[in-house]
Design a protein around this nucleic acid. Structure first.
Lengths: 246, 246
DNA sequence: CAGCCTAATTCATCATGATGGTTATTGACA
DNA sequence: TGTCAATAACCATCATGATGAATTAGGCTG
């Protein structure tokens, strides 16, 4: 299980040491004592300075991987990682490529039903107003035949919908996936043969239905619309541009 | 937008400074220069030592929030955080309470369809064998009327199914949610009035159908079974035990 | 034996100074 | 004018030493 999952990118000595220590940690039971800070430092990288090793420990602490305690018998301990922390770390370690984006879309669609359900239950009048505003932007974009703007306003609508969800975990998950998709999507097109404008008109209609269902709190209608929404979508992704170096 | 979202728990000076700097960052455009390291340190917390501030910067760097560059005109810059990093860190900072668990179940159910779909498409014979093994454990548990064991074997089955999914993001998401639910679930019961054994018998049947559908790669049947699977489930969660202090 | 106090252990943070690596700018030179 | 080398601005990391706070172990008292 001690795989070398690169934590993003470890160019600094502190991060390299963190990766190494994380690997050591993976082979230990939670709660185990690794030794005093000094001992651990020496075993990870004897040439690492105290300051840098403090950075290492700070990183791992913030990821919920270790605990450091003072006093006799103190030192560095393997933390019990909450599933949430594990999830967070698992996602942090993933690198984004083209296929990831496709999967993100798929997952997002699966979550759409939940988000919309929540919106039906909890959306306030102000929330609905915000959605209407996004819808208006979509209409404008359609009239102007501005595909990019159409996409953006559509995303805005979805994020407004997601913002009403009560569950923090659901909304952050959904919004992040939306972000992820946004960042890597060039264009969306119909799955079938259809002119772009016509396609957009149809999409707009679906979203109008969606907002109406949310406004009326009609769970059944909303679910049906979501299903319609998720059908017939083709997403064209571009390869990750990585993180621009500058 | 500049909310004080506590990153887990910021007791150390470095983390406090990181939170503060993150708030400052939120009001800046990507790529903006905040100044030299020394200037930024002074503006965030003049009494913070260099070593601690280095920890601060390391944390924010690992979260993809800042970049630090050497050379004339160098210093601390606002970076754009990748959605994945944002998601990971958002989840790291969430604390688990009772409602979270309920939401996790809900999300897990929504993902179940995707996972099973993947299993239908990609499961090898060996995968199916592993699933059968878990099924056998479930049958034993049913015979012994061992509710706990039934739960555990059921979870094992689900994790075997999820393990076949191709998409890393889907499977880690699903498995982590499963973990989370496991760790906080006391028991599962029927939504209606039904004896526990009878309930378990029904659940077993559903899971047998599921594995059969996967084995045959029958997407339609699998989807129907998943829907059946997600209905009529009551989960009894216990409050988070927090993180034991020791 | 229980409870309390002291001492020892270990981490947290600060201060300061030094060396070496990156990067942008400047100025000389072909 | 274009190229290249020297220079200066900055960061990364190391080394050392000091102070204070947290925490535990052990001993002492009632």
């Amino acid at each position: 299980m001690a795989s070398t999952r690169g934590t993003s990118f470890g160019s600094s000595r502190a991060e390299v040491a963190a990766a190494k220590l994380a690997d050591i940690l993976a082979g230990q039971q939670t709660g185990a004592r690794l030794g005093t800070k000094e001992e651990v430092r020496a075993s990870v990288d004897a040439s690492l300075s105290l300051a840098s090793f403090n950075e290492t420990l700070r990183l791992l602490q913030s990821r919920g991987l270790v605990t450091v305690r003072p006093g006799p018998g103190g030192g560095v301990f393997v933390a019990e990682q909450s599933p949430m922390a594990r999830l967070g770390n698992a996602l942090l370690g993933l690198n984004i490529d083209r296929s990831t984006v496709g999967e993100a879309v798929r997952i997002r669609n699966a979550l759409e039903a939940l988000v919309v359900e929540d919106a039906c239950l909890y959306a306030t009048r102000a929330d609905v107003a915000a959605m209407e505003q996004a819808l208006a932007r979509m209409r404008d974009a359609l009239r102007e035949e501005d595909g990019i703007e159409f996409l953006h306003s559509n995303w805005e609508l979805h994020s407004k919908i997601a913002a009403t969800a009560r569950s923090e975990i659901l909304s952050s998950l959904y919004l992040s996936l939306l972000d992820l998709v946004e960042e890597h999507t060039i264009s969306v097109r119909s799955a079938g043969p259809m002119s772009l404008t016509e396609f957009h008109r149809e999409r707009l209609g679906i979203h109008e239905d969606l907002v109406r269902a949310i406004e009326q709190g009609d769970l059944v209608e909303a679910a049906a619309t979501v299903e319609l929404h998720n059908k017939g979508l083709g997403v064209e992704a571009r390869p990750s541009r990585g993180h621009r170096r500058r």
